[in-house]
């Protein structure tokens, strides 16, 4: 069984947010939900000003506080390391959202729609696709995943459940990289098997000093950071994406 992990190289990341967009397009996430989020920070005073960037997916913790508080066992840790949500079990109590110190959970306020930014049902929209089904999600996502055959990705997620980054389980199970990793123009994101010494994650971790977010909480994230800054107290967050479109 592989042990999946992600390594984020902050020396390479140039804050373009392509990973955020890739995730949004691949997973059709609701407005204002970013399963992958890229922080942009500014610090210092002119002319000694610095800006730096920090992508933040779900940490897929080995000791996941979210799973611990889930009253129905919907949030669980898979053997390969992915932390997943079973849509069929989730009751939307949002305990996980509160328990997670990284803020990666998003409550699903609405029925899932084909594209959260447009109402694809409208005639005006359908006419541009000549009446065809517009792109709203990868249609094969609606199926059971993993050995345990649970629905953890895709259009099956409902109103009233909590959702977050799945490491693109639909791709990973097919031998592909998560969408954010594949799309990063800076090759700042690595994904692979920690058990395999040849994998790029093992290689990068072997070469560079790494750290994890909020290490002191004992959550044991599967997301490692290398390079540049750990968050700095005087860093000011800039260009924050919060407004609903």
């Amino acid at each position: 069984m592989p042990r999946y992990a992600m390594v984020v190289d902050l020396d390479r990341c140039m804050g373009c947010r392509a990973c955020m967009e890739a995730c949004k397009v691949e997973n059709n996430t609701p407005t204002a939900a970013f399963w992958m989020y890229v922080f942009r920070f500014e610090e210092g005073e002119y002319p000694n000003t610095y800006i730096w960037f920090m992508p933040r997916p779900c940490m897929h913790c080995d000791n996941p506080p979210c799973a611990k508080v889930c009253p129905v066992g919907a949030r669980y840790k898979r053997e390969d390391g992915l932390v997943a949500t079973d849509w069929d079990r989730c009751i939307g109590c949002r305990y996980c959202e509160v328990a997670c110190p990284y803020g990666v959970n998003y409550f699903n306020w609405k029925e899932p729609v084909r594209n959260y930014y447009l109402d694809w049902g409208e005639r005006d929209v359908r006419r541009v696709t000549n009446g065809q089904t517009p792109p709203y999600r990868n249609p094969d996502l609606d199926r059971p995943y993993g050995e345990e055959k649970r629905r953890v990705a895709g259009g099956g997620r409902l109103k009233g459940v909590v959702e977050k980054c799945t490491f693109c389980v639909q791709r990973v199970e097919e031998g592909l990289q998560p969408a954010c990793v594949a799309n990063c123009p800076a090759f700042a994101l690595h994904f692979g098997d920690l058990e395999d010494p040849q994998s790029s994650v093992s290689q990068v971790l072997g070469r560079k000093h790494s750290w994890r977010l909020l290490e002191e909480l004992g959550t044991e994230p599967r997301v490692y950071y290398v390079g540049a800054h750990p968050a700095h107290p005087e860093s000011r967050q800039i260009e924050e994406v919060k407004a609903r479109v």
Binding site: M1, P2, D80, Y145, G146, V172, E173, E174, G175, L176, Q177, F191, G192, D193, E195, D196, Q198, S199, S200
Partner: peptide
Amino acid sequence: LASAQEVAQS
């Protein structure tokens, strides 16, 4: 591609 080698196939 490399990671594809590592990923289990269902």
